[in-house]
Structure formats: structure tokens, C-alpha cells
Design a protein around this nucleic acid. Structure first.
Lengths: 247, 247
DNA sequence: CGTCTTTTTGACCATTTTCAATCAGTGTGG
DNA sequence: CCACACTGATTGAAAATGGTCAAAAAGACG
């Protein structure tokens, strides 16, 4: 086995972004080559996965932003969540028959491809990794829960505040941000489709947040001026990114 | 090992409700006794799991209805999903530090308790079961996606239609229903908190569905008069409960 | 400079909420 | 059996939130 080659392919191993592998050496990650079958790059606006797709593979995001969404027959769109480096996508397509949502790139996105058929090997041979996949699924569920609470019960103002701190904190955890100026590569249309509001009302709501010096909206970016304020407005506690327990 | 005893305790094994174990014999399920640590019964209105709880166990629902929900500081409540026999609850509490949602019983609920600490053994020794846990998590995520689409983008009328067929179909899949008369043990308050509407508007919306002969609401129950009609109104395709793929 | 996308605004309309009662059904104790 | 308390369903009217339409302004970019 040409370990060197494998090490190179693991130098930026997507699995390192999974909790269990953060502190693993390249050598320890070498076995990953057994599962990785390729890399993929998607341009902004490109559809990474489309609803209804069969036999999709499992991907980990190496870099870039994307979003998961569903649409109704007449075109109404709901953004379900945003995808950042370290995220796992395509689990539904891998486990069930087909994808029931689509994924679109917001910036150039690099993905690591795991072949669907090889997933069983993960479960039989690498229980720790299998556990991580479950952990990621539970994490996504938790985020969706909070999102649903937001869309269902928070006012437009609270909802927008929640979304912006949420994105800010997640981006920070994903190591995407340096200062307070969050390069959140979305338009107000995306925000509207996440909040379940119209673009017009979203615009007015963002303005209200800006008037209160909580944020400053810039084209495809947003400065978080008052993180605490946003948390208070949305009555959200923020992430306490609990690390995965030992197995 | 007293196999007989174990067989008895598995006669109604909670794992049988998990896809992978539907067709397993009692004998094959005997090993489950290693994980099961007890049984629990919750009365209607009782809180099964509460937000913020630490070191919770993992449960499978043997019988009864419950619901998962989150609340805001001022009491606004959002119901996230309903829990029926065969469902897994408490995964978040098991995998992460604490539960971020609560669960309340709607009818008497019987639960099978798996100790948190023994989950690792499932991953190392029973990959098929580990896979099932992931599968259940992915299924919950899928339901939440559809719910979020509903609350975010469907009108009150479409949303209510969606919820009722959804509950009808799920209850049917869980083997809870016989005829068209769905014994859905919820009040209009529950429906409102699921749809993200006020009780008043929910009442008027349900009336509209009844006026169009789609449903007939009865106290804590609901007759589904026109399943196809509800699917059309909500532009939902319904469940194609794909069985879990072979691992 | 012209074109394209995104943001912003105002006026008007629709949906949904809130408030405040009322009604119906169930169970209890007298 | 009836008065009473409770819970859940139902109603109408006023008020608020958010949506739609149409158009203009502001950047981004070749």
C-alpha cells in the first residue's frame, strides 16, 4: 500500500471535520481512502443534488456554502438549512430510496464523494465513523427543530434576528469567519425563503434590525454588530457545540 | 443463559418496530435483552422527556401517542412532530449533552428504555441495528423538512390539509388505524401549535376543510373523508414508506 | 454606458391574530 | 336528576402582521 499517496489524499480529509476525527493523524485516516471515491466541485447556483434523485452518493463538504431546500409545485421555495464545510449531505439519498430535497451551491463548493454502496462497510468495519454519521444526523435534526420553532412561532423580527446569529455562529464554528463581518453569501431572497416571508417584508425587517444597530446588511454579506442583542431579540441561547461523547 | 426468559421479554420487542427487525424471530432478537434496561409508562399529559435533561436514555415507543415540542421563553409552543409506536425518542439526549426539546404523552404511552451507556455496544457489536438508528434519524429529518416547508410556505388551509393526511398516513403505517375514522388524539390547540397558527384561525381553517367534505372533526379525533383531496390541496405526494435498504 | 441583479419604497390588500364571549360536552358532588 | 366546574370548540369584530404589485434606486460588471 502506497501510504504516502494516501496520506496526501487525506491531508485535507473531509472526515477530519467530523467530530471523531478532529484529532486523528493522517496515518490514522489512511483507511478513508477505501471509502472516498472522488471529489466534486460545484459552481455558485449549481444544483448539487436534486429532489427525486436515486442512488445518490454521500458527500462531505470540504469548502464553500450551499443550502438545502424544497419547493412546492407552483414554485414556492423553502430553504431548510445551510450547508457549510464539515457537513454531511445526501444521507437521505443514501439510506432511503431517493432525495426529498435539493441542494444548491451559493459559492464554489468542493465535495468529497463516498460511494453509496460502500456505506455498509463503514457500519461493519468502522463503528466510530458510523456513530459520527448518526451524530451528524442528530445535529441536523436539532437545527431543524429550532428552525421550525422559529418559522412557526417567532415574529418576523425575531425570526430574522435568530437566522442571522445562527448563521454567524455556525460560520464561526466552521472556521469561516475572522471578524464580526460575516461573509454570508446570501441574498435577501434567500433570507426570505428561509424565514418563510416575502422578499419585501424581509427587506423591511432587515432594515429594522439595522435601525436598531444589531446588524448592517451589505450585498451578499452581513455585519453582526450586536451578537448579544440578536440573541436577546430572538430569545435563543446560541450554540453550545457539545463535542461528541466518547463511544 | 435462560433463553426462555429472554424470549418472553422480546415477545413484543421494541426493536421489531425498527425496519431491520420486522421479520426477525424472537430467538434472533434475544440479544436485545442486553440493551433493554426497563419499561416505562407515561400517562396522558405527562412529560416523558424535558428540554435540558442530561444523560437521558434512548427509548422506543411500544404503544401510545406523544409529541415533541419546543417553547419560547414567553410560552409560545411549537409542536415539532408526533411520536407513534415504533419511533425512537431521546436520541439527541443520548448523543449530545442534553435534550433540546420536550416530549409529552397524548395517550398512555409505553416505552422501552435503553441505557445511554450501552449504545456504544450497539455500534461495535450490532452494525445492522446501528444502521437502523441512523435510518430512523434520517427519517425524522425528512419529516421535519416537509413540516418546515409546510409551516414556511403553505397557506393555513394547505397546511392543515397536509397535517391531517400526514397524521392519517403515519398512523396507518404504524398500524393504529382500521377505517377512515382516524383516532387522532389531539385537540385543536395541538393542531394550532403544530401549524404555527392561533387556535381561532385553526378552528376556522378546520371548518373550511369540513365544509369542503375533506374531513370531519370530532373531539380529539378526525375522520378523513377524502384522502386524495387532502393530498391535492396540500400538493403533497404522501408517504412512499421505502423500506430500509440492505446493508 | 447599458444591462443585470439586488435592494428599497409606497400604497393597497389579504391573512392571521387578539380579544371577548358564547356554546357544547363531560364529569362531579349534592 | 340538577347545579357547577372544566375543557374544548365556535363566533364576531377590531387590530396587527405580513403579502402583493409596481416602480425606482443602487451596485456590480463587462
Amino acid at each position: 500500500m502506497d501510504k504516502d499517496k494516501k496520506r496526501v489524499s487525506c491531508s485535507e480529509c473531509p472526515l477530519r471535520s467530523l467530530p471523531a476525527f478532529r484529532d486523528f493523524s493522517d496515518k490514522e485516516l489512511a483507511f478513508v481512502s477505501d471509502f472516498k471515491t472522488g471529489e466534486l466541485v460545484a459552481d455558485p447556483g449549481a444544483t448539487i443534488l436534486v429532489e427525486g434523485a436515486h442512488s445518490a452518493h454521500l458527500y462531505t463538504v470540504l469548502s464553500g456554502w450551499a443550502f438545502r431546500y424544497k419547493t412546492l409545485a407552483d414554485g414556492r421555495r423553502q430553504i431548510l438549512n445551510f450547508v457549510m464545510p464539515g457537513d454531511l449531505v445526501g444521507l437521505q439519498g443514501t439510506l432511503m430510496d431517493e432525495m426529498q430535497h435539493s441542494i444548491e451551491a451559493l459559492t464554489p463548493v468542493r465535495l468529497c464523494v463516498f460511494e453509496r454502496g460502500r456505506i455498509s462497510k463503514v457500519y461493519t468495519q468502522h463503528p466510530t465513523l458510523a456513530f459520527d454519521i448518526t451524530w451528524m444526523a442528530a445535529r441536523e435534526e436539532r437545527i431543524l427543530d429550532e428552525n421550525l420553532l422559529s418559522v412557526g412561532r417567532r415574529s418576523a423580527f425575531e425570526r430574522a434576528a435568530y437566522l442571522l446569529v445562527y448563521l454567524y455562529q455556525r460560520a464561526k464554528l466552521a472556521g469561516l469567519l475572522t471578524g464580526r463581518s460575516a461573509e454570508i453569501p446570501v441574498t435577501q431572497q434567500h433570507v426570505a425563503d428561509t424565514l418563510g416571508l416575502s422578499t419585501v417584508h424581509t427587506n423591511k425587517t432587515l432594515r429594522k434590525l439595522a435601525d436598531r444597530n444589531l446588524i448592517k446588511w451589505r450585498e451578499r454579506a452581513c455585519d453582526i454588530l450586536d451578537e448579544e442583542g440578536l440573541l436577546t431579540v430572538s430569545s435563543w441561547e446560541g450554540f453550545e457545540e457539545s463535542s461528541r461523547p466518547f463511544i
